[in-house]
């Protein structure tokens, strides 16, 4: 059984973002980079499936510049068997359709029984890529999965809906699954596994070989949201801050009376 996991490298969301020179994306300097949170669940689910189906082989795929290799190595250290780095520096200029096109072009005719992606990325957040990969490959897809079980060519999953409701869904493989937060508990790579990962196959393919899809949209402008105003910001020594907060709660709310 062959499994494909698609991951993205994103900045830590606590960073102080700046707009880049072209005004269409965030500047890539002074950021800490990590694996997209949703994709960590995708990687973990693939590995759990391999623990169940011993003969399974997991390929992890990531599109981006040289620096995404760090994130690829993490996925290998978590337990993926081999990696494909689709090399492209200006990856943020691609729209979701093109990202999905690259992945589909790579995956076509490779016989992946399951393709796992995160349900969305933390930076761009379009939530389209996994579903579009399925469309390109004419595979069935289920998005927003919070529970996953597999047996004999059939995946039984739970989709998360609003307000604590879940939908139980069955789909025969091959299929695409997009993973939602909480699907499992992503493992931390252990030191021996980090060492082992260094010997695993990491193939680089130039994005140009796989990019066949033209964009249908582009970013006109990236900007900061207007501050809503009204809110007060308190900074300083914490003892004084606490006194100030209590004073404000007394003035503005009824909870301390």
């Amino acid at each position: 059984m062959k499994i494909l996991v698609c991951i993205k490298q994103v900045p830590d969301m606590e960073a102080k973002f700046k707009i880049d020179g072209a005004g269409t994306w965030y500047a890539r300097t002074d950021l800490a980079w990590r694996m997209n949170e949703y994709d960590e669940y995708a990687v973990e689910q693939a590995i759990q499936l391999k623990e169940q189906e011993q003969e399974a082989d997991i390929t992890v795929l990531c599109i981006g510049g040289e620096q995404v290799k760090e994130t690829i190595k993490k996925a290998l250290a978590m337990g993926c068997d081999r990696a494909v780095h689709v090399a492209m520096e200006a990856v943020s200029s691609l729209e979701p359709l093109q990202i999905a096109g690259i992945i589909a072009e790579f995956a076509r005719d490779q016989g992946f029984a399951l393709i796992f992606t995160g349900m969305q990325s933390q930076d761009r957040g379009s939530g389209q890529v996994g579903l579009l990969v399925a469309e390109f490959l004419t595979l069935p897809a289920v998005s927003t999965v919070v529970e996953f079980a597999y047996e004999a060519g059939m995946a039984t999953v739970r989709r998360e809906l609003e307000g604590g409701t879940r939908a139980c869904v069955k789909v025969a493989t091959p299929a695409v699954i997009t993973c939602q937060l909480g699907l499992n508990s992503p493992r931390y790579p252990t030191l021996p596994n980090i060492m082992k990962a260094k010997k695993k196959e990491l193939r680089t393919i130039p994005a140009g070989e796989l990019l066949k899809v033209a964009p249908r949209q582009e970013t006109a402008k990236l900007f900061f949201p207007e501050k809503r105003g009204g809110g007060e910001v308190l900074e300083g020594e914490i003892g004084e801050l606490a006194d100030r907060v209590i004073q404000i709660l007394k003035e503005k709310t009824t909870v301390l009376s």
Binding site: F17, R216, Q217, E218, L222
Partner: peptide, 8 residues
């Protein structure tokens, strides 16, 4: 951040 999108 916010992104303004031009659709083609």
């Amino acid at each position: 951040l916010r992104r303004q999108v031009q659709v083609a």
